[in-house]
Amino acid sequence: HNLTITQGKLFFHYNPKLCLSEIHKMEEVSGTKGRQERNDIALKTNGDQASCENELLKFSYIRTSFDKILLRWEPYWPPDFRDLLGFMLFYKEAPYQNVTEFDGQDACGSNSWTVVDIDPPLRSNDPKSQNHPGWLMRGLKPWTQYAIFVKTLVTFSDERRTYGAKSDIIYVQTDATNPSVPLDPISVSNSSSQIILKWKPPSDPNGNITHYLVFWERQAEDSELFELDYCLKGLKLPSRTWSPPFESEDSQKHNQSEYEDSAGECCSCPKTDSQILKELEESSFRKTFEDYLHNVVFVPRKTSSGTGAEDPRPSRKRRSLGDVGNVTVAVPTVAAFPNTSSTSVPTSPEEHRPFEKVVNKESLVISGLRHFTGYRIELQACNQDTPEERCSVAAYVSARTMPEAKADDIVGPVTHEIFENNVVHLMWQEPKEPNGLIVLYEVSYRRYGDEELHLCVSRKHFALERGCRLRGLSPGNYSVRIRATSLAGNGSWTEPTYFYVTDYLDVPSNIA
């Protein structure tokens, strides 16, 4: 807008934040220059609390790290170098490059900038070799853009010569660093050979998330399962459950009422301010606690030095998902009996873990797994792929695949051998790939016309006998059925096997 004052003059007093240069501009645009008398524009009460600059400061050096910015700028000295009290560095987070010096300023003089007072450097006698002032900004957020400017702080001049310097606002972004852990990993099994893994992005990506790394490792069953005799009275049979499938998407929606109208769909109840505040506090606490764990609990591995020492970490090797089922080394339970199943799973520490690289999504279907087997899954978020990966501390989750139908069934015939004193040795093959492992066998036998009897055969007993022995049988026709019990439950009964026990007292003698 054009402003013209045809008559009258300007009068400025007691404006401590208004620089004289701005008042002189007002004289020019209003056409009143030359009308004012000496005392109409006070030299001592206008701009006496402001830094009124008329020179431009330029930054000469900028260096960044993930949490620091090192700045240096060209030296500046007023005509009387004693008038320079120091520099004021202003900075704040700036997602967009549209910041002005006066953003967030209120009537009390406060604003949204963080201000650092910096002492002037030592003055050199040689004007050509003056030290460049600077400042190291610490405690910054990774991968965050900051708006920065600097200006001088000078003393009051009796001659009211307006001098000083100020830089333009520059924008500097800190470097990326390792992201925080992925949030809320959930693993479920939808079949006997697959596990579905879902997660949420890290709360602090500290860069642009480029991919996720998912490692999985087959877990050995508890050692007590191999040692305890679950045929003993009072000892509860062990059981394991597989990871249940995901709930429906509708039930997972946030901010939804727990109660549904019987007449149909209901609208979600909005969260109160107290609920939102509580969630923010919980989120802040979780982030602080995660940072504490990362800094205190997890110790970084030592990389190899120039002395030739090897990095103890196993090298990563990509495998196809079809090879995942046989990740671990199978060892027989008892070496003397080769027909026992290889369900003991000690994992070799030198073995390469299978892994998958996930790009542009937060889910993965891990296939080719062994049925009813526990897996430990390790999830890392990465925001750099080359020249070397920059990934987060791992988040861990466990899951067990679903049982395989008929995996616990005894394959092959049940054979028998009759000894003296009416002892019958029953023999059968253990299931080759049971659900988890076989903890015991149930032997059901009966003599024709009598009630059915049951015998429990422990895992250890089966390994020693290759089956079991029935003792003290009365003469007669017998039928026997056997079924295995694994961590997933009972298998199917075998087809009945028949044998006849004679009275050993009636056996004919070869003595003449």
Rank of each mutant, 00 (worst) to 15 (best):
W493P: 01
L321G: 11
G322W: 11
D222L: 09
N339L: 11
D409P: 02
L379V: 09
G467P: 02
A330R: 15
L487D: 02
H454Y: 14
S283W: 06
D450V: 14
R466D: 11
V331W: 14
I482F: 02
W242H: 12
R301I: 03
S315L: 11
K361H: 09
C391S: 04
L487W: 12
L321S: 09
E227P: 07
E388V: 05
E227V: 13
E495S: 14
S243P: 11
S320T: 11
A407T: 09
Y292K: 02
S257R: 03
S509A: 10
D291R: 03
V359L: 10
P245N: 07
S304E: 08
V345H: 10
V329D: 15
E417R: 10
F337I: 10
S203N: 15
E265I: 08
Q256F: 09
S239R: 15
E310L: 14
T241M: 06
N510Q: 09
A330V: 07
T497E: 08
S320E: 12
E452K: 05
A220R: 09
T210K: 15
F355V: 11
T307A: 06
G306R: 12
H461P: 05
A309K: 13
T347I: 14
N421A: 10
F215M: 09
W493T: 06
T494A: 06
F226W: 04
P332F: 15
E362A: 12
E217Y: 15
M402Y: 12
Y441K: 02
T333A: 15
N206K: 02
P431H: 00
K460L: 08
S203W: 07
L487F: 02
Y292V: 04
V324Y: 00
R370K: 13
G308E: 15
G207L: 02
K302P: 15
P332T: 08
F462P: 03
S458H: 04
F285S: 07
E247L: 10
T340P: 12
S239E: 09
A463T: 12
T347C: 07
P205C: 02
C269K: 07
L364P: 01
V299A: 12
D291F: 03
E290S: 03
E221D: 06
V397I: 06
N295G: 05
L232V: 15
S239D: 15
G467F: 06
S392T: 03
G489F: 04
E282N: 12
S283E: 05
F289L: 03
E282K: 04
G412S: 13
P387S: 07
S398G: 02
Q219W: 15
P245W: 12
F355S: 11
H425I: 11
E362R: 13
P403S: 03
Q380N: 15
S492T: 07
L379R: 01
C269Q: 04
I377W: 03
L235M: 11
W216T: 08
V457C: 15
A484T: 14
T307Q: 09
E281L: 07
E224W: 15
V507Q: 15
S509I: 15
E282R: 03
L237W: 14
F337G: 05
R466L: 09
N339C: 07
P403D: 03
C266P: 04
N477V: 06
I438E: 00
S458Q: 05
V329F: 14
N339P: 10
N255W: 14
W216Y: 15
V439E: 12
D385N: 09
L440C: 06
M402L: 03
C456F: 03
C266D: 07
P346S: 09
A399T: 07
V296C: 15
E495A: 09
F462T: 05
G368I: 10
A395L: 09
R471K: 08
R481W: 09
E217S: 06
T502K: 09
R447T: 07
R390P: 11
V397T: 03
V480Q: 05
F215G: 08
E227R: 08
Y292E: 04
F419S: 05
H425E: 11
F226A: 07
S315W: 08
E310R: 09
D261M: 09
P431T: 03
S274A: 15
E260N: 15
A484P: 07
D323Y: 11
T373I: 11
R471F: 11
S474M: 10
K287D: 03
L505H: 09
T210G: 08
L453A: 13
S223G: 06
V365R: 09
F372V: 01
F499P: 02
L293A: 03
H254E: 05
A394F: 09
V457G: 02
E310G: 10
Y498R: 11
V297N: 01
L235Y: 06
P238F: 06
R218Q: 14
P270T: 04
Y292T: 03
I482N: 00
C382F: 00
D506I: 11
Q275L: 06
V365H: 15
P338N: 07
R218T: 06
R318W: 15
I410A: 09
S363I: 12
P238C: 15
H254V: 08
N206F: 04
W216M: 12
R313Y: 12
E260G: 06
V457Y: 08
V480P: 02
T502A: 13
F462S: 05
S304T: 04
C266G: 10
V327D: 11
N208A: 08
V414I: 12
E227S: 11
L235E: 03
E281C: 04
E279K: 02
D311G: 13
N477F: 15
S474I: 12
D250G: 06
I418P: 09
T494W: 02
I482C: 05
P354Q: 11
